[in-house]
Design a protein around this nucleic acid. Structure first.
Length: 873
RNA sequence: GGGCGAUUAGCUCAAUUGGAUAGAGCAUCCGGUUUACACCCGGAAGGUUAUAAGUUCGAGUCUUAUAUCGCCCA
């Protein structure tokens, strides 16, 4: 067995082997196995792996490997998303570098180039997921723009259309001038920013004026009313009068509307229904005209009069100057307000009138709400259910058209009629008979196709075998940041089109941040590339660290020192395997030896192990994978390796043949179980290590998940062993305090009550664990040795004759300190037990534990007192 | 403005339904190559669990208020 785990060699080799054997496929489990299906959240096809992908990869692979080991038909469906805007931007960037643009090359050529780009870069992310160990069924890999999924998208669209749930019409939308497309509410991010509030005079008929304030003076050009609150004594008398647009002089009415906030600004409001969502509402109420003053690139259009053609911000400045010259301005002041920006491009989004396609979402949302309310779908952590409800209860119709080239074309056709190029509309996969039909140029929001993902990837709308067997899926694991974008839409569309919840559990993870909780950003220079870590330490340490660094729904702060620590843990597990491996001789029978051959340490480690298995099982059941991983680590590093493994050396090197074999079988059984439990966390090392211990089965990836055997969990054994281990700890401490050369073997004498037999039988434990060469039992009547340090645990007093080293005064102080500590604890325990409320109300087990504790403390107290009195004066 | 989360050791995080002396890692200090491992071993120090009140036999955990930070929605 190699001295260290060579991950660089093993990872690609094992991955290829697993895949070649077909172990990533659900069929490995047999036709009658219960399915466990996870749809991978499809990463952007041209993206490359970042820590967010690594986190979902680690978590989903963990769940899939776990369920596979539990005998389920585990299927992880991989795939990628065409990511409309993101991909189109990348290709546009490429064209720009070539000195060209998408307009210049034209639609056909642009699409060709984008597909080419996808072919070149599309494999990157999936290759990187393989490096993490992702056990997806690559034969079922899908792409949102492939033929099958495109069919699904068309089918979904047409169905909604036929049901009257899709409509097209002019609405005020969030317009992204840089991308030149509409974006949905979700794609707009607003943040508080410093801006300027401009105060100016709105001239009225009769020479008076109303003062008005705005942060966007250029929209004055699109005003179609001035609104005041009818309850406002200052302005109410102006209602019904005519006002005149500054500079342009257009005549507009002064209207009264309750929604005008009298406290804000001047208390009067300019109304621009075509460029502001609130004003749009007011416009609807008062049947105001809509005057659009912006072009698609946010330059001013012909309605802006002499400002036509100017950029929106240049216009703002120029108009203000002109108004100043005309004596219409009052003042400007610094003002902090919320500015809407495009999530993708980052530029300021303009509300703009535009004709778009919408999904009437209400009926779909209702089903989605009901499914979670009824518990058909659970969200982990549960608090996100509230967030989900709130969003769906207040949901707006979904704008699904995008003015992009890369995406699913909306299946609609137009034909010119009466001079209107869109005079006739036909919705359908193909154009109707006749000449002159042109296809809708808009494409669908990327999330429209993503919403179908759990079932479209399995063949829907065709009634495929996969759809029948593997849909609905079980767990949807993804980031909480796309709860609305994606999860809610999958639930809505899944319920609508398949009449089934697409999954029964939503597990949400958080963002991966740097070790101080900062977001990764190129400008901060704190970006960690997961593949750099994989290259340096292997995939296993990264996976385990990501999983154990956080709790569901919360952000993960990745501290790279933890990755190093995990790397050392992996080495530790390897070394344990190596130790077991090197002591094996011949064929070792698998499984545990018969109960009568198990000594106390063996029964102890098995009790601890099976307690661990039960804990891990419970933690897996409630999706607390991180804590499960930490507990396995703690068991191996703090109990198995330093204690049982060390103790077993006695049997191995000094025991009888039968004892040796029994110990080896226990070692193998414990290690085998641990490797199984660790496999979903760190598949590579565990698979490789498993080959070096006797095992049953072809590979760990398809081995059985351990089950806890309650019969092996034994409180009494654990507490007997704890006494011995406590003595070991105290012995080590005492040696340290007296600065006894660690290499020096010392003697110990013991006076023990009920534990005498355990002490005698297992005296070798002390030689193995704290270098005590001989343990001599004293009878109760024997005098204690004079020049000895003493250790008291429960009813045992242990004496270490440290001739020449013992400082009597120090020893007395030590014992007195111990006596005080014991007295305090006894008092505390007695107080608890003296409280009738406690004794009557606390569970019996808790009360009993306190009684046992008290009797232990009292024994110890007697021993300490005796020792103190016998110390030479 | 509404909602949610966080606040535990110098730093990064745990603590499963309320139950013994609140645990790890990193960093710090002391001591060690003991035949699996120096990618290691043994030990130490480090905490008023943000603050205040409450419920309870018992609170890091439940309730209320306050403070600070973060996120979501308008």
């Amino acid at each position: 067995m190699p001295r260290n785990f060579d991950y660089a060699d093993a990872e690609p080799r094992l991955y290829a082997w697993w895949e070649r054997q077909g172990w990533f496929k659900p069929e490995v489990a047999g036709a009658d196995a219960e399915p466990f299906v996870v749809s991978m959240p499809p990463p952007n096809v041209t993206g490359s792996l970042h820590l967010g992908h690594a986190l979902f990869g680690a978590l989903e692979d963990l769940m899939v490997r776990y369920e596979r080991m539990r005998g389920k038909a585990a299927l992880w469906v991989p795939g990628t998303d065409h990511a409309g805007i993101a991909t189109q931007l990348q290709v546009e960037n490429m064209l720009r570098e070539e000195g060209s643009s998408r307009e210049e090359v034209g639609y056909e050529e642009f699409l060709y180039r984008t597909w080419q780009w996808k072919e070149e870069h599309g494999g990157t992310i999936t290759q990187q997921l393989r490096r993490l160990g992702a056990s997806c069924d690559w034969d079922r890999e899908r792409f949102t723009l492939d033929d099958g999924l495109s069919t699904a998208v068309t089918q979904a669209f047409l169905t909604l259309w036929e049901q009257g749930l899709i409509y097209r019409g002019p609405r005020l939308v969030n317009w992204s001038p840089g991308l030149q497309t509409a974006v949905s509410d979700l794609e707009v991010e607003t943040a508080e920013e410093q801006a300027t509030l401009y105060y100016f005079k709105y001239p009225l008929e009769g020479g008076e004026h109303i003062p008005v304030a705005t942060t966007r003076p250029e929209t004055i050009l699109g005003d179609t009313a001035v609104a005041v609150n009818p309850a406002d004594a200052r302005y109410a008398r102006f209602i019904g009068k005519r006002a005149f647009l500054p500079i342009l002089g257009r005549e507009i009415p002064v209207i009264g509307d309750d929604s005008v906030d009298m406290e804000f600004g001047t208390g009067a409001l300019k109304v621009t229904p075509a460029h502001d969502f609130n004003d749009y509402e007011i416009g609807q109420r008062h049947k105001l005209a809509l005057v659009n003053v912006l072009n698609k690139d946010a330059s001013m259009n012909a309605n802006a009069g002499k400002y036509a053609g100017m950029d929106r911000y240049d216009c703002r400045e120029q108009l203000w100057q002109d108004m100043e010259a005309a004596g219409l301005t009052i003042k400007t002041e610094a003002y902090s307000t919320r500015i809407p920006r495009s999530q993708r491009g980052g530029e300021v989004v303009e509300p703009m009138m535009s004709t778009q396609w919408y999904v009437r979402i209400g009926p779909l949302a209702e089903k989605a709400l009901a499914a979670v309310r009824a518990g058909d779908i659970k969200i982990v952590p549960e608090r996100y259910e509230k967030v989900y409800f709130h969003w769906l209860e207040n949901i707006q119709d979904w704008c699904i058209s995008r003015q992009l080239w890369w995406g699913h074309r909306i299946p609609a056709w137009y034909r010119e009629k009466d001079g209107d190029p869109e005079g006739e509309i036909h919705v359908g996969q193909n154009p109707p008979q006749g000449e002159g039909w042109a296809m809708e140029e808009d494409v669908l929001d990327t999330w429209f196709s993503s919403g179908l993902w759990p079932f479209s990837t399995l063949g829907w709308p065709s009634e495929s075998d996969d759809l029948a067997r593997y849909y609905p899926t079980q767990v949807m694991e993804t980031g909480h940041d796309i709860l609305f974008f994606w999860v809610a839409r999958m639930i809505m569309m899944g319920l609508w089109f398949t009449d089934k919840s697409p999954f029964h559990t939503v597990y949400l993870h958080g963002l991966v941040r740097d070790r101080h909780g900062k977001k990764f950003s190129k400008s901060l220079g704190n970006v960690i590339d997961p593949l750099t870590i994989v290259d340096k330490l292997g995939a296993d340490p990264l996976r385990f660290t990501l999983i154990t660094s956080g709790t569901p729904g919360n952000d993960v702060n990745l501290d790279e020192t933890r990755v190093d620590h995990t790397f050392r843990f992996i080495n530790k597990v390897w070394q344990i395997t190596s130790f077991i491996n090197m002591n094996l001789e011949g064929e070792l029978e698998l499984g545990l030896p018969p109960a009568e051959e198990l000594d106390l340490p063996a029964r102890w480690i098995l009790s601890r192990l099976h307690r661990l298995i039960a804990n891990v099982q419970h933690l897996f059941d409630i999706y607390q994978f991180g804590e499960a991983g930490s507990q396995i680590l703690a068991f191996m590093w703090d109990e198995f390796a330093p204690t049982y493994l060390e103790i077993s050396k006695h049997a191995t090197y000094a025991g009888k043949e039968g004892e040796k074999i029994a110990a080896q079988r226990v070692l193998v059984a414990v290690q085998d179980t641990c490797l199984r439990m660790l496999h979903p966390f760190m598949p590579f090392m565990t698979e490789e290590a498993w080959r070096y211990i006797p095992h049953d089965g072809e590979a760990l990836i398809i081995a059985d998940w351990p089950k806890s055997n309650e019969a092996l969990i034994d409180d009494e054994v654990e507490s007997r062993m704890n006494v011995l281990l406590e003595l070991v700890r105290e012995l080590r401490n005492t040696r340290g305090e007296y600065k006894v050369d660690p290499g020096k073997r010392i003697r110990a004498l013991a006076k023990a009550g009920a534990s005498a037999k355990d002490l005698e039988t297992h005296d070798y434990i002390f030689s193995r664990l704290c270098n005590v060469e001989a343990l001599q039992l004293l009878a109760a009547a024997d005098p204690a040795p004079e020049h000895a340090a003493s250790i008291v645990v429960s009813d045992i007093a242990l004496y270490l004759p440290l001739e020449g080293m013992l400082d009597l005064e120090a020893e007395r102080e030590r014992l007195e300190g111990e006596a005080i500590r014991l007295t305090q604890q006894i008092a505390k325990t007695q107080k608890m037990l003296g409280n009738d409320n406690f004794v009557s109300k606390a569970p019996e087990a808790i009360v009993q534990r306190e009684r046992d504790r008290l009797s232990d403390l009292e024994s110890a107290q007697r021993q300490v007192a005796e020792r103190l009195s016998s110390l030479p004066q």
